[in-house]
Simulated scan of single mutants.
Amino acid sequence: MIRQLLTLGAGIALSAAILAGDWWFNHRSHYDGPEAASYVVSDDAEGDVDDALARAAERDTRVLLVMGANWCHDSRALAGWLETERLAGLVSEKYELVFVNIGMPQRGDGHNLGIARRFGLKDLPGTPNVLVLTSDGELVNGDTATTWRDAASRSESAIYDELASLAG
């Protein structure tokens, strides 16, 4: 009897996993934008941010601080969009780009969260987050920094328009 219940439970769990995988695949397959194969991050996130702030001061640009993760489809989608010719041109002209791995803060397994707090964000509810900073570390887009969890659903034009408006 116990063996039958365990077998039944395992079968239900396997079915649920298959259904969840099918749901994810079907919804993900509708995305037709660019996606970076890997979300490149550094072992020295604090140093990378400090270096970007210094470069921004030298070049009179802003810092585009993308806080996301490799596991996150929207983080990889945003990284892919930022590699397109149109967005890469805007970013190279107006920003110093930094990617920071934040793990899974929404599940209590966050990384580098002190960087967000440094710029006035107490909570990162998901990934990615996009912080636009002046060269002296002022957060320009505090009202929208944590609203990028739908980056894969945004068009190139929508991303371009928002980043262009924040470029200063």
Rank of each mutant, 00 (worst) to 15 (best):
A10R: 00
L139Q: 06
L53V: 11
A20N: 10
G103F: 09
A52K: 03
L14R: 06
H30A: 14
Q4T: 02
A56Q: 14
W23G: 11
D32T: 15
S153R: 14
R55G: 01
I18D: 04
S29M: 05
G108K: 06
R28P: 12
A69E: 04
N141E: 07
L97R: 05
V40A: 14
H111D: 15
L97D: 04
Y39S: 11
E85N: 05
L82F: 11
D32S: 12
L133G: 06
Y31F: 11
A20T: 14
P105Y: 05
T7Q: 03
A54W: 02
A20R: 02
S42Y: 05
K94H: 13
T61I: 13
A54L: 04
T134I: 10
E58K: 08
R28L: 06
F119E: 08
G80H: 12
Q4R: 11
A17Y: 14
E162M: 05
V100G: 09
T146E: 05
Q4G: 03
V98M: 02
G21F: 09
E138R: 09
R55K: 11
E83Q: 10
N141R: 00
L65W: 01
S75Q: 06
N26P: 13
V98S: 04
G80A: 10
W148D: 00
D60P: 09
E138V: 05
N141M: 06
F119I: 08
G110A: 07
R117N: 11
D109T: 11
Y160W: 04
H27K: 14
D22M: 15
D150C: 00
Y31S: 03
V98R: 00
G142I: 14
E83I: 12
E83G: 15
L124C: 09
G126P: 01
A52I: 08
S165N: 08
V41L: 10
G110E: 10
D136I: 12
Q4N: 08
H111M: 15
V63W: 14
G47I: 07
A37W: 01
E93Y: 09
S75E: 02
A69V: 13
R3G: 02
R76I: 00
R62Q: 13
Y39F: 13
H30P: 01
T7D: 05
A145Y: 15
V130L: 04
E156N: 03
A54C: 00
L53N: 07
R117Y: 05
A79C: 10
G89S: 14
Y39V: 07
A57F: 04
R76D: 05
I18C: 07
I102S: 00
E83W: 08
G126F: 03
G68E: 09
G47D: 12
L19P: 01
